[in-house]
């Protein structure tokens, strides 16, 4: 599967168009990208520049109009949606701008979800440990609507890291939080990443957050360029 290779994620000629051939709009234009194992990459860019679309394609949540993505050395275009899902299970973590916790489930159950999908053993204990790591050991049974925004995003962090993924995608993780809470969440995210050596692809429009990554890329008009420090 190439799990041991140095490149964990590779995109070549990645293109995404919407609409017809004449009236269509090119959102991503022949993107090429390689992310080595253990690296933290930030994708910067204004709203509507195609950052989230890029993230979705890199994670195999959607199919590109042209080009290909290799995840853990496996070409995504060769897989159907179930195949792509199976490839992600337990190996790819996500942190979203809008937290995306399942409303009816408790904090603990939310964290257990990806562990169960990856068929891990000792699911509850692992989930509990992950929540304790983000300082929510006392709020295991709370439902999302009983938690603050910052707490919800910490649950999401615990959920993302609990299966110990090799690759983490984060989409504007502080976008729905105030400055201080956002900074605390980001601190925790980078702590966890460094502890485990997780590869990170982080989409943000916050230069300060981006500066904490090893490499910064800029999305502009559907094109990706290396950002100058």
């Amino acid at each position: 599967m190439g799990d041991d290779s140095a490149t964990i994620l590779k995109a070549s000629n990645l293109t995404r168009r919407v609409g017809g051939p004449d009236t269509g709009l090119t959102i991503l234009d022949a993107i090429a990208l390689e992310v080595p194992r253990g690296e933290a990459v930030a994708v910067l860019g204004p709203s509507g520049s195609g950052k989230s679309t890029l993230l979705g394609l890199l994670a195999g949540l959607d199919a590109p109009s042209a080009g290909d993505v290799e995840l853990f050395g496996q070409s995504l275009s060769a897989l159907d949606e179930d195949g792509r899902a199976a490839l992600r299970a337990g190996r790819v973590g996500f942190v979203f701008q809008s937290f995306q916790l399942v409303p009816g489930l408790s904090a603990l159950e939310n964290v257990m979800l990806p562990l169960e999908l990856a068929d891990r053993s000792d699911v509850a204990a692992t989930a509990q440990a992950a929540l304790e790591q983000v300082g929510l050991g006392a709020r295991l049974r709370h439902r999302p609507n009983e938690l603050s925004g910052g707490e919800q995003q910490r649950v999401a962090l615990a959920r993302a890291f609990a299966p110990d993924p090799q690759l983490l995608f984060a989409d504007e993780p502080t976008g729905n939080l105030d400055g201080r809470t956002g900074a605390a969440v980001i601190d925790r995210l980078f702590e966890l990443r460094e502890e485990r050596g997780t590869t990170l692809v982080l989409v943000t429009h916050d230069e300060a957050v981006a500066r904490r990554c090893d490499r910064r890329l800029r999305m502009d008009d559907g094109r990706l360029t290396e950002a100058v420090a």
């Binding site: 179930d82 199976a86 790819v92 399942v102 979800l113």
Partner: peptide
Amino acid sequence: ADASALLRCFGAHQRL
């Protein structure tokens, strides 16, 4: 819909 998309994102099979 949201929960279902999330499960798929975390690697769940459609059948599941």
